[in-house]
Design a protein around this nucleic acid. Structure first.
Length: 854
RNA sequence: GGGAGCGUGGUGGAAUGGUAGACACAAGGCACUUAAAAUGCCUCGGCCCAAAAGGCUGUGAGGGUUCAAAUCCCUCCGUUCCCACCA
């Protein structure tokens, strides 16, 4: 009867049974409460890494617990399948991107299935499939109709040797093309944008509606949207041209002693007298040659050139010189600033370097500042001085303070107006790439930009192509594909050859999952409104900004188009930490060495014999750490891998993968295996009228495990402490003598059920060995019996002057006086209270009594 | 420079105002075994005492609030992440 726990044989066997029985099919019964559990879908790179395993295991446990609690659960999986790696692989190996991608999907799907993840594969989507991108294109047309998609010029990275557009990630830190090594140039192209800025205010405000999101993610989104309130003030040049500036500190306008324009500012040429022209042009050329990185680098010394012109400060009529400097960016605000050196550090450094005047307009009570001796800009509080109508006001942004007063004064005197700006830019979605969803528009010489009629969707991507990595997108070379009659006038016209940013594909996939196979519509609104919003979303914190913001934007737009009855897609969000692998580092050679080549006790470089440093690296980014999920699963089984990754650290924290610790989880599962096998087939005594003391204690242990692990799963998903509860229960069962007791039987079945969402295969096997025909995954999640949790006695801590002196057992639930009486009779009290005067007694019911004595 | 977080045994971590170190990993010892593996049992923050009993001390450092602080407040140190010449 006794058999060894052999995951390699039972796991695939049960996976097959579950697949045949469609155990993980999504329940559609409308009378059950719904739960939508979602993991961020992977890019099909070809292989699962430990970060994936962690992500999907977390969501799978949540989905399984909700099923056992009686919910109908949608738990789908799919593929974020468009993107650059497929093109790179195509160039390197001469395989068409589609073929490479689908092969990877097949491979990774098999790896996911091997982990025992309870997906309903009937809801699978792949963003590169025409069934999917047809609707991505349809949604783009919705944006176009809503006036939320438009074209404007924007720069791209241009490789002059390969004659191709490069993604930012294809440009190295020196500004060279990764493939040709050519110095990358900037080129202007007309490209498509989505007007996410129209939604900036809602995307910001609605963060308040997301109590189930981590605060730090909301804060990151808030910072990314970057709302700032201030004023627009128009300065005039001597020639009468207008130079609007945006400032968050309009109260310091009286302290503006010069202006700075971005070197690219369109008025620069006009402002420059001939004698300054050479200097200005030289500076502009130098600024243009600087890479983004150089220009935004920290501790960059201030540079700049005077244009030779002056502007008039509208609040006091003073002429102030106009400079250009590369620390002012054309892409932010108006590309021009008023400089207040006394109260802005960058302006201060600039003024000191070029000997420009500094005028104090905020004077704090202490220290008393003097513009001549100022060592840094004063950006803190104080009272306004030298500021005409604002003199004497407290500096600050609140009502009645200087900023608000300044805005009101500017508006009343017609010198400027209140203005709100956002750091958020419109979303550039054009990619000069092949492997993406084609933007469904046609350029007609007569009609201009014409949307492809919905009936003609999808605009399919020709799949059998060859990529060279040189020249323009292959779409521009395919005459058959490129040339089509204009849908409006019939003239021969050309298709748009840009494809969409892959972030578009992933901004709506969670909607399609609810109705993945719909051929007639993007989705049936009834189904989507039923399943959505997502109840629990799980993924890496690296997506905290872009993906989550774009998905929220899409959901709001589709809501406003009347397609959805909700406008926030994800109710609760869990951002899981990274998985890192143990590696060794040789500080002299700078080489990383995999852990399996090094003796842990005495890490030495296998080639040079030098001592090594221990380090952890992110699994997905390092090739040097030899731990792939495949090997671990082969050696210990999927259940052990799942248990380990959940037990090792709380889900939000980074996790260091160390194979030595995996053994511990394997041993725990083996112990459970033995416990159940030793029990199975035994006869169980009938329930006696009264439980013995050990039975009562065991019953309390059982129901404590239920109670605690259920709480751990409810609040914050503390899988690590939930598993430790299972271990405690297993230890209690192991120590329990009367194996024929009905309470012991209750403990065994409870343990198997509690463990089922975590280790689905071994529990299914053990459940069957216990004589059950139905799957353990169809059982109800155990309920804690409050009567079993009741304790007769509690430990009481006796403190004298807050120092622990003794622990005694007292009856539970005593009133304060009775509890104090027990405490007074304790040995510690007798010993330490003798001859002392009691100043105060603190009684915490069922916990402690503290005697404060002198 | 701005924002957020973290800092607890040899290690991962537990404890969110009330017995610090749950549950594990590693390590050491013992039992079983011809032996090994597996398994079971014991010890395991530091210091004092021959040992036990016991005592003192201990959650990055310093201070504060409280009968009571890993937990709350202030200052500093270290570290991680995000953003950043953002007007």
């Amino acid at each position: 009867m006794e058999s060894r726990y052999n995951p390699a044989s039972i796991e695939p066997q049960w996976q097959q049974v579950w697949a045949e029985q469609k155990l993980d099919k999504t329940l559609e019964a409308r009378d059950l409460p719904k739960f939508y559990a979602l993991s961020m879908f992977p890019y099909p790179s070809g292989n699962l890494h430990m970060g994936h395993v962690r992500n999907y295991t977390i969501t799978d446990v949540i989905a399984r617990v909700y099923r056992m609690r009686g919910y109908r659960v949608l738990h789908p999986m799919g593929w974020d399948a468009f993107g650059l790696p497929a093109e790179n692989a195509a160039i390197d190996r001469g395989v068409p991107p589609a073929k490479w991608t689908y092969a990877n999907i097949a491979n990774m799907r098999a790896q996911l299935q091997r982990l025992g993840l309870s997906y309903d594969w009937d809801h699978e989507v792949a963003t590169c499939s025409p069934d999917y991108y047809r609707w991505t294109q349809w949604i783009f047309l919705q944006f176009l109709q809503a006036g939320l998609a438009y074209r404007k010029e924007a720069t791209v990275n241009w490789d002059p040797i390969d004659q191709t557009v490069l993604a930012n990630e294809q440009v190295d830190s020196e500004g060279r093309s990764w493939r040709s090594g050519a110095k990358v140039e900037k080129r202007l192209l007309r490209q498509w944008f989505l007007k996410i800025t129209d939604y900036a205010e809602r995307l910001l405000n609605d963060l308040d509606q997301l109590p189930g999101w981590p605060e730090r993610v909301k804060l990151m989104q808030e910072n990314w949207i970057g709302k700032s309130t201030g004023a627009q003030v128009v300065f005039k040049t001597e020639a009468g041209d207008e130079l609007p500036v945006f400032t968050t500190r309009p109260d310091t306008l009286w302290g503006a002693t010069f202006m700075v324009l971005s070197p690219e500012h369109p008025l620069v040429a006009k402002l420059t007298p001939p004698e300054q022209a050479d200097a200005i042009q030289a500076y502009q050329t130098a600024a243009a040659a600087k890479s983004e990185i150089d220009r935004t680098a920290e501790d960059q010394e201030k540079t700049g050139v005077w244009t030779g012109s002056y502007a008039v400060n509208p609040v006091n009529g003073e002429p102030i010189p106009i400079w250009i400097a590369d620390y002012v960016l054309m892409g932010y605000g108006t590309g021009a600033i008023m400089a207040v050196p006394a109260h802005d550090q960058r302006d201060f450094e600039f003024a000191r370097k070029f000997k420009l005047p500094i005028r104090l307009v905020v004077q704090p009570a202490d220290p008393t500042l003097d513009a001549d001796t100022l060592s840094a800009a004063w950006s803190q509080g104080g009272v306004l001085v030298n500021s005409g109508p604002l003199d004497g006001l407290p500096a600050g942004k609140g009502a009645g303070q200087s900023v608000e007063a300044a805005i009101q004064w500017l508006e009343a005197n017609g010198k400027g107006q209140r203005m709100i700006t956002y750091r958020l830019r419109d979303w550039l979605i054009s990619r000069q790439r092949y492997w993406g969803a084609p933007i469904p528009v046609i350029h007609c010489p007569n009609c201009g930009v014409v949307p492809v009629p919905e009936a003609d969707l999808p605009v399919s991507l020709p799949e059998n192509i060859e990529l060279s990595g040189r020249g323009a997108s292959p779409l521009t070379q395919l005459a058959d594909w490129l040339t089509v009659p204009c849908p409006t006038c019939g003239t021969m016209a050309q298709r748009e050859t840009d494809t969409m940013d892959t972030f578009i594909d992933s901004s709506w996939y969670f909607l399609r999952y609810a109705d993945a196979q719909n051929q007639a519509q993007v989705f049936d609104p009834t189904k989507v409104n039923d399943w959505l919003p997502v109840d629990q979303y799980v993924g890496g914190v690296e997506h905290a900004i872009l993906h989550l913001l774009y998905s929220r934007f899409f959901t709001k737009v589709l809501h406003d188009r009347g397609l959805l009855n909700f406008d926030e897609p994800f109710l609760r969000l869990l951002t899981q930490g990274m998985v890192q692998g143990l590696t060794y580092f040789n500080p002299r050679t700078g080489r990383w060495i995999a852990s399996d080549q090094v003796n842990r006790e005495d890490p030495k470089d296998p080639e040079t014999g030098e001592a090594l440093e221990v380090a952890y690296k992110t699994m997905s980014k390092s090739k040097h750490n030899g731990v792939a999920p495949g090997e671990v699963i082969e050696k210990y089984g999927a259940d052990t891998a799942r248990m380990f990754i959940l037990f090792k650290a709380p889900p939000e924290k980074d996790l260091e993968w160390d194979e030595a610790d995996v053994e511990g989880q394997f041993r725990f599962l083996n112990r459970v295996w033995r416990l159940v096998h030793e029990f199975a087939g035994r006869s169980v005594n009938p329930m006696a009228a009264a439980l013995t003391k050990p039975e009562k204690d065991l019953r309390r242990a059982i129901h404590t495990a239920i109670q605690e692990s259920s709480e751990d799963m409810q609040e914050g998903y503390q899988f690590n402490t939930a598993i430790s509860e299972f271990m405690k229960l297993s230890n209690a069962l192991n120590d329990f003598a009367d194996k024929a007791s009905p309470v012991y039987a209750e403990g065994i079945t409870t343990l198997v059920k509690l463990l089922a969402p975590f280790a689905p295969h071994i529990t299914e096997e053990l459940w069957q060995i216990l004589g059950n025909a139905e799957s353990v995954h169809r059982q109800a999640w155990p309920q804690a019996d409050p009567t079993a949790l009741v304790v007769d006695e509690v430990p009481l801590v006796i403190q004298i002057n807050s120092k622990n002196r003794e622990v005694i057992q007292i009856p539970a639930g005593l009133d304060k006086e009775a509890q104090e009486q027990y405490a007074r009779q304790s040995e510690a009290a007798q010993k330490y209270l003798e001859g002392k005067q009691i100043k105060k007694v603190v009684v915490v019911p069922n916990k402690l009594v503290n005697f404060v004595v002198v």
